[in-house]
Nucleic acid binder design. Structure first.
Lengths: 327, 327
DNA sequence: CTGTTAGCGCATTCAT
DNA sequence: ATGAATGCGCTAACAG
């Protein structure tokens, strides 16, 4: 592997000059620049990012820590994060925590050893206590402390919007079905928004909300519908829970959307271009990723304002609601 | 950030000794070892992987190049690759090529600069011409040259198995519906296996196979069924195509699986623990990832046999076939 | 404009 | 068993 020294020797210049043409820093005479470039090409020179990183104390690498990439929401998010990072000449180290506190901490150690410039994390430990405050950190859906930069979608609005749509589509009694983590998360506001809007619209509702990990969610959902047979519109905390609800209702021979309508949350798609799997309140995943990358780079460059960024959600019609209503 | 020198100073030893206890190399007196460890803890010492990488010319990093992480097959694969790498103390750099030849080449340049120890790739360019033969490379579903290590599932068997199952379930005339890349891929054998088995079982069949990118696949599928109204069993080249077929048949008011049965291929699941979306021939994604990681590490350690690894596929019953038949 | 030099943090000789 | 010295490839500061 050719090094800068080899290039310098072949071009009959000093290594400083090679560095200058490589980085386009300092002034270099056009003729020497061409000489150097020719030498680089001839030797098939490839700069060594490790040497540069060691010297500069900057690696142009960001770690993305998520529970698991094997999930449409996270994989879409990761896709856009990588794409945005790539556009800024950054690389992405992917870390699957499996929602394990222990693995999260292992990754924190690892990324520090690997001198990542920053971390974008969807995590569930109190990582902020372990990340040196010098390490730029952007969190998603989770507001640790005031000083942490957090990107989230408007979860409260999501709950409100779901109620609005369900009522608009003729529902008379609503249900909220969800689970929540032991740790604080912005997503709990989905339920709050649901409740607030239902109260405001003066529409009756029932709630089934359990803490993760849930042993038998399907059984819980079934019990819920047996207890509340008059519920004809459901807001599910996630699209996956909406799928579970569909399964239960199918087994109970209750038809969706004719008898009961369901709106999920997240707006997951299995791949770009494919449609949502249920009617849903969609998080603007692409914009969230874009915002997260923008923020992390600002933090890295030391020019970021610490703030919480909340992006708006939208309703997307799918197969689990009636679409023959007044819009 | 504390360095080895700081630790050495605090522990009153030389940097060599610190390096020795850190890497458990060479002999160190127990008492000094403890002194050093105490100093490391006190200073909250974190080894610098960039310095080490520069020195050792090894980074414990592998790049995964895939078309897009936003796809259940690739995200499951990436999940298992990362997990297996992680168990071997390796890190994973994720690269989404978007099936763009240009981006693939950019990534190749990038990962070379970043001194990755190896590449696992699901790619569509002739990357082998651009990767220095010194860079360990494991490819999935794509056999470049004899010397390339390739991991794939038994695509031919997949086609055979699908025919077997469809016939077993009572189908009298089969259809194969798929698309294929402009580039050679192991997956084209799915069709070959389908044809071979149908011939052998002496069962009539029709084929619709177009080259990507397809402008209007749904229209093509519709035409196929109009032309072959007697087809009552279909093997789809992928699960996603199976979904498309479902959509078309739904619009044509032909019932699945009562009138027509469909078997997809890949066995995608949206997340761990969730079920397949259609009846399918499943690739052993976890084993493929495991094999790929094992191979790449062997290549890195210079002890790999160059070979093609073919893993068996299995049939998984889903909602698009009749399950009331003799097994 | 350009050549020379001093580290960046670490692993590894080579003496001791 | 351990301390000192060398260099991995690069950038930046300095001297010309």
């Amino acid at each position: 592997m050719a090094t800068m020294k080899d290039v310098a020797a072949l071009a009959n210049v000093g290594v400083g000059t090679v560095s200058r043409v490589l980085n386009d820093s300092g002034a270099v005479k056009e003729s020497t620049r061409r000489k150097v470039q020719a030498a680089m090409k001839e030797l098939n020179y490839i700069p060594n990012a490790y040497a540069r990183g060691l010297k500069m104390n900057k690696t142009y690498t960001v770690a993305l820590i998520i529970p698991t990439i094997w999930h449409p929401f996270f994989s879409e998010f990761a896709y856009y994060v990588e794409r945005n990072l790539s556009e800024h000449k950054f690389k992405m180290l992917l870390c699957n925590s499996d929602v394990s506190n222990e693995k999260e901490l292992e990754y924190i150690q690892m990324v520090q050893e690997n001198k990542v410039d920053g971390i974008i994390g969807i995590t569930y430990s109190d990582l902020d206590n372990f990340v040196s405050s010098h390490l730029p950190f952007v969190t998603i859906d989770r507001h640790f402390k005031e000083e942490t930069v957090c990107v989230t979608s408007d979860n409260f609005q999501a709950g409100q919007l779901a109620v609005e749509k369900l009522v608009e589509k003729g529902c008379r009694k609503l249900g909220y079905i969800g689970t929540h983590s032991r740790f604080p998360s912005e997503t709990t506001k989905r339920r709050a928004g649901f409740v607030e809007q239902a109260e405001r619209m003066n529409i009756p509702y029932a709630i089934y909300d359990e803490m993760d990990p849930v042993l038998d969610l399907l059984a819980g959902i079934k019990t819920f519908f047996e207890k509340h047979p008059d519920v004809d519109g459901v807001f599910a905390h996630t699209d996956f829970i909406a799928l579970d609800i569909l399964e239960v209702l199918d087994a109970m021979e209750r038809h969706v959307p004719e008898e009961i309508q369901i709106i999920g949350c997240d707006g997951i798609k299995m791949e770009a271009g494919r449609r949502q799997i249920v009617s849903t309140i969609r998080q603007p995943v692409d914009l969230m990723a874009q915002a997260a990358v923008k923020k992390i780079i600002e933090l890295i460059d030391g020019e970021a304002v610490k703030e919480k960024i909340t992006l708006p959600v939208t309703y997307i019609e799918g197969p689990t609601t009636k679409n023959n209503c007044v819009k």
